[in-house]
């Protein structure tokens, strides 16, 4: 789980071009959208593709993403339960 969370942090930084941020800057429980890391609805769509491409998880409703993408912690939990690759 710790490895997955580290991997996720690196992927988030890469796909969202979060310049000047390192995996160590993102806390497991930190809120990703709005306040916290300041991600927005376009980033959510990018994360949906990340889920599909890397973990084989298809999310057809962008609204569902909101709960899953609350934090690295919630993302990792959802991935380990639902991943197909």
């Amino acid at each position: 789980m710790t490895a997955l969370k580290e991997e996720l942090k690196r992927q988030i930084i890469e796909v969202l071009n979060l310049e000047d941020i390192t995996p160590a800057d993102i806390q497991d429980e930190e809120v990703l959208f709005g306040e916290g890391l300041g991600l927005d609805s376009i980033d959510a769509l990018e994360l949906i593709v990340l889920m599909d491409k890397t973990y084989g998880i298809k999310l057809s409703d962008p609204k569902k993403g909101r709960d899953i993408f609350q934090s690295v912690e919630t993302m990792a939990a959802y991935i380990s339960e639902n991943r197909t690759k």
Partner: peptide, 10 residues
Amino acid sequence: EQFLTPTSFI
């Protein structure tokens, strides 16, 4: 046509 992200399209 798979795994396309919207940012560059927008």
